[in-house]
C-alpha cells in the first residue's frame, strides 16, 4: 500500500489529463538492486505514477520468473510507459504504441526522444513530430523536453497533457540549473509542468516545487542513493514541503533591510 496521503495533499491534487493524483512525485523503476528494493522504495516515495521502459523480452527465460508488473501491479499504480532510448520520432511512436498494446489501451505516456548519447539531451524537432502523431492517435502525452519556453509552448499547443523540462541532464543529479527558464515555462503553461531529470537530492525537489512545478519525476536520485528507501521518503517529504511553501508564498527577499524577529523595545539596560 502507498503511504497514506494527508488531507492537505488530498485537497490539492495533481490533475493530469483530467485524472487527480494525491502524490506530486512520479518515480522511475530502473536501476534498483532488485524488484524487492524497487517496490520498497516506490511505496516509501508515495508515488502513484511510475514510469516503465519497453524492451525486447528475454526469450528462453524462466516462464515463472517475476516481472516488474508482478512487483508493481497496474491495479495499484498508474503506469507511465516511456520511449527512453529512442532517437527518432518513428522509434518513439512505435515504442509507445507497443506500450499501449501491452497495457491494454492505456493512453497516458511519457514521450522522450533523445538527441545525444552522451548527454541524453532531448531532440526537440523529433519530439515535436512524435508529439503531433501521438496526440492525433489519442495518446495522453507527458513530454520530456529541454527548458526552452518556446518549445514548451509549442508542445502544449500540440496538445500534450504535461510539459516536463529537464532541470539538468538525465541521471546527472546536478539539480535545478536554470530556475529562471523553469519559471518562464511554468508561468505561461496551462497544463502541469513537471521537472523531469536532474534532481539529485531532496532540496532539489523542494526547489522545483517552490518554483511552482506541479510535480517532479525522478529515478536515479532515489535508486542510486546509498539508502534508496530512505531517499524515497526524503523525496516525498521534500515534494510536499516544496508544494506547501509554494502555496504559502514565501516572504520577500530583502538584502539589507534587516528586520529583527524579536521586539526592539524593552531591552534591559
Amino acid at each position: 500500500m502507498n503511504a497514506p496521503a494527508d488531507p492537505a495533499t488530498l485537497a490539492d491534487p495533481l490533475v493530469i489529463a483530467g485524472n487527480p493524483y494525491c502524490s506530486r512525485l512520479l518515480v522511475g523503476t530502473g536501476k534498483y538492486r532488485d524488484f524487492s528494493q524497487t517496490r520498497e522504495a516506490i511505496v516509501a516515495s508515495g508515488a502513484q505514477i511510475v514510469t516503465v521502459a519497453i524492451r525486447r523480452t528475454n526469450l528462453g527465460q524462466d516462464a515463472n520468473a517475476p516481472s516488474l508488473l508482478d512487483t508493481l501491479p497496474p491495479s495499484e499504480f498508474t503506469y507511465l510507459p516511456n520511449s527512453a532510448g529512442c532517437y527518432t520520432a518513428d522509434d518513439a511512436v512505435r515504442t509507445l504504441k507497443l506500450a499501449r498494446e501491452l497495457l491494454d489501451g492505456h493512453a497516458l505516456t511519457k514521450l522522450e526522444v533523445l538527441g545525444d548519447a552522451n548527454t541524453l539531451f532531448p531532440n526537440v524537432r523529433e519530439t515535436l513530430k512524435a508529439a503531433e502523431r501521438l496526440v492525433a492517435d489519442g495518446f495522453q502525452v507527458m513530454v520530456y523536453t529541454s527548458d526552452d519556453p518556446i518549445i514548451a509552448r509549442e508542445l502544449e499547443q500540440i496538445g500534450c497533457v504535461a510539459i516536463m523540462p529537464l532541470a539538468s541532464l538525465i541521471g546527472s543529479g546536478m539539480g535545478i540549473l536554470n530556475p529562471w527558464n523553469l519559471r518562464l515555462i511554468i508561468e505561461q503553461a496551462k497544463v502541469p509542468v513537471l521537472v523531469d531529470a536532474g534532481v539529485g537530492t531532496a532540496s532539489d525537489a523542494a526547489i522545483a516545487m517552490e518554483l511552482g512545478c506541479a510535480g517532479v519525476l525522478m529515478n536515479t536520485a532515489i535508486a542510486l542513493a546509498q539508502d534508496p528507501v530512505r531517499m524515497a521518503r526524503a523525496m516525498r517529504l521534500a515534494v510536499e514541503a516544496g508544494r506547501d511553501a509554494f502555496l504559502a508564498g514565501r516572504m520577500p527577499r530583502k538584502l539589507y533591510a534587516a528586520s529583527p524577529s524579536s521586539p526592539t523595545s524593552g531591552l534591559i539596560s
Binding site: T38, V52, A53, L68, L69, N82, L102, N219, A223
Partner: peptide, 28 residues
C-alpha cells in the same frame, strides 16, 4: 505492425515474418 492481443490465434505466421516481442521493464 502490432498484432492485437485478441488476434493471436487468427494471425497466420508466414515463412519470412519478423517479430518483435516486448515487455515492460524498469526505467525512468
Amino acid at each position: 505492425e502490432i498484432v492485437p492481443k485478441g488476434r493471436y490465434d487468427e494471425t497466420v505466421v508466414g515463412p519470412n515474418d519478423r517479430f518483435e516481442i516486448v515487455a515492460a521493464v524498469g526505467g525512468g
